[in-house]
């Protein structure tokens, strides 16, 4: 049958949900082992943070889409949590292989890492649901208001921190569809072109530090 925008969107949603049928919205057994191997066990903090971010997400979702759609917000959030745990496990397996270590205490106790990872997973979920209408220039669905960088405002996340997880996210989730990889690439582009250069961006502090560290690699002239 011909591929209509609605059919394409439905397929993407089915594929996303299909890929998460065996995933849980709780950490898997493998993830729990990684948590227990940490010098400081992050389990409690992770669960607490997911709960808090869930409340914020559902509230902002309902404000944007309509209070009657609160249930939809919860469903989207649950899918995002499932995806983020799945990707976290895959990332840690890769890191274990690459670094030959099993103690990821610093990474797993880094709140910004977890928030950025959850935000990336939710961006994939939200973009999948909005998919068809956005691609065709339509804006009938109020969910188009939730497109990037909406999630950064909801979680009060610096764009530069979100940017840092994108590549590893794509590598860790090989079932990610082509159009979703393109979407994440566009988010990256948007961050580097504009959003990362807001006054409170951590990028300025990093640039200052790198200048103070003395002559290393020379920055390109501003015009370039």
């Amino acid at each position: 049958p011909p591929q209509t925008p609605i059919r394409a969107a439905m397929n993407s949603i089915q594929q996303l949900r299909g890929g998460l049928t065996s995933a849980s919205d709780q950490p898997s057994g493998n993830l729990i082992v990684y948590f227990k191997n940490c010098t400081v066990d992050p389990s409690e903090e992770i669960t607490k943070r997911v709960g808090q971010l869930g409340q914020i997400f559902c509230q902002k979702f309902a404000e944007a889409v309509g209070q009657r759609c609160e249930g939809l917000g919860k469903t989207r959030f649950t899918l995002g949590v499932q995806l983020h745990y799945k990707v976290m496990e895959s990332m840690l397996k890769s890191e274990e292989k690459r670094l030959s270590v099993q103690n990821f205490s610093k990474l797993l106790n880094n709140a910004t890492f977890h928030t950025s990872l959850l935000a990336s997973a939710l961006e994939v979920v939200l973009a999948t649901y909005v998919g068809g209408s956005l691609k065709n220039g339509g804006s009938e669905s109020p969910e188009t208001d939730l497109c990037f960088p909406w999630i950064l405002d909801v979680f009060q996340l610096h764009a530069f921190d979100f940017y840092k997880v994108i590549e590893s996210f794509i590598k860790a989730e090989p079932t990610l569809k082509h159009d979703m990889i393109e979407h994440l690439g566009r988010c990256e582009h948007q961050i580097m072109e504009s959003i990362a250069w807001k006054a409170d961006s951590p990028l300025f502090e990093l640039l200052r530090q790198s200048r103070e560290e003395g002559p290393g690699e020379q920055a390109e002239p501003p015009a370039t």
Partner: peptide, 21 residues
């Protein structure tokens, strides 16, 4: 992911990006 430009080298990963060991 063929059209995505991977900028990280093979020896870099998420741990380095979040300033971890």
């Amino acid at each position: 992911s063929q059209d995505y430009h991977f900028g990280l080298e093979d020896h870099e990963g998420i741990s380095e990006l979040f300033d971890c060991d």
